[in-house]
Design a protein around this nucleic acid. Structure first.
Lengths: 212, 212
DNA sequence: TTTGGAGTTATTGTATACAAGATATCCTAA
DNA sequence: TTAGGATATCTTGTATACAATAACTCCAAA
């Protein structure tokens, strides 16, 4: 930490990471004073961070009854997954339409990492590589607003998607699924790419919901 | 105002409205102390409001050099419009797939208002009705996340879209364009509905960009 | 035993005070 | 006259103090 940024920004980043990684879990109440103690600062920068996280939908405020990590019912989760699945498909479609050589190379590199990690059954490595794979596609849309949208959903669904991959087969199946997406992406068939990505995400989400 | 909400929430809502309506214009710097004076409160609640608006992308923070209303270059604006146009199309497609009778009635009612206002050359009335028309379609997606996404873009593009409608012909042309969208929506042809909505938004945005 | 309520405690919302960085001013020297 | 820099001023970031409201405790009465 300590990157010259303001204290409140550092706290915001730390909390976001803790929530995304599941270290702070859904529904948990965040006490301003305790957080201030934890970071050895006053309540003020903590409050600033919490406010921003509330504005982003990561935390939810209950008036004077404090803030909690947003938790979702099965139905809300399904809605969130559906939204993300649509956005992912949109990204794939846009990326297919305007794929540069550079973007293509980046996507191939990310996919190579996915395959490598999957075959080594390296879960954390796969999650990182998978993240990069998808973010690279977002970037290939050449639209920063779309990128932010998709990244936002990726963050919010992070804690749930992490559960999905338990066996080595899960990883390999997911990596294989990427190959299909890439095929359509590189043939610049935007409709097929979008549809394939939609299917990929739908598979992921259905299997998560099935376990809940 | 004064609806039992906390002061900072009220300030947030007021500022958002002022920015969306163009009373505070793009690039303008917001001074915490001056705002505190304007609302007759201390800087604290003002800062909370500003923070949330920054998190929503409505304001942009420059480190210790204060916050300003986000302003967009022509290119950024084009990107934002492109993103919104894709989201609008997505909404139309989803709405077409799951249109209930109730939603259909709401859309028809909103469109009737649009036509009425357009024929009376009532600009503020048309803007309100147009807003309702689009929001109703967002709602018809039955997905609150998509609804929030689309509403967010609508807010951020508000100040720019408002400029577009100058003549009575503009209003009538826009209202006519709605009819085409509705036709496909009601025939539950999601692809055609999405495409038609995409065209509608593209027309709007192109004519705005042309004037800049 | 349970319910209702008064009083206490704890936590958030707001105000003020202080610290630190950024901008502006103005003086000096070339 | 202009460039450079030191100083002053202004603005934001953080800390602390106070106010207000919600949660909790515990006792009394039915």
């Amino acid at each position: 930490m300590q990157k010259g940024k303001s204290i409140s920004k550092q706290i915001e980043a730390t909390l976001r990471a803790d929530i995304a990684s599941g270290q702070i879990d859904a529904g948990e109440r965040l006490d301003e004073t305790k957080l201030a103690d934890r970071f050895s600062v006053s309540r003020t920068p903590v409050r600033e961070a919490l406010n921003r996280l509330v504005a982003q939908g990561i935390l939810v405020s209950n008036g004077r009854r404090g803030v909690r990590v947003t938790e979702y019912t099965r139905e809300e989760l399904a809605h969130m997954f559906e939204a993300m699945h649509e956005i992912e498909a949109l990204c794939a479609g846009m990326a297919a339409k305007r794929l540069t050589l550079l973007a293509r190379a980046s996507i191939e590199a990310a996919q190579a990492e996915c395959i490598k990690a999957a075959e080594a059954n390296d879960l954390p490595g796969f999650l990182r590589a998978n993240e990069t794979f998808h973010l690279t596609i977002y970037q290939a849309t050449k639209n920063p607003f779309i990128f932010d949208l998709a990244s936002g959903f990726r963050q919010r669904t992070g804690p749930f998607r992490a559960q999905k991959f338990s066996t080595a087969e899960d990883l390999i199946a997911s990596a294989r699924s990427h190959e299909e997406i890439i095929k359509h992406l590189f043939s610049t068939d935007s409709v097929a790419a979008a549809s394939e990505m939609g299917q990929h995400m739908k598979d992921t989400f259905m299997s998560i919901l099935a376990k809940m």
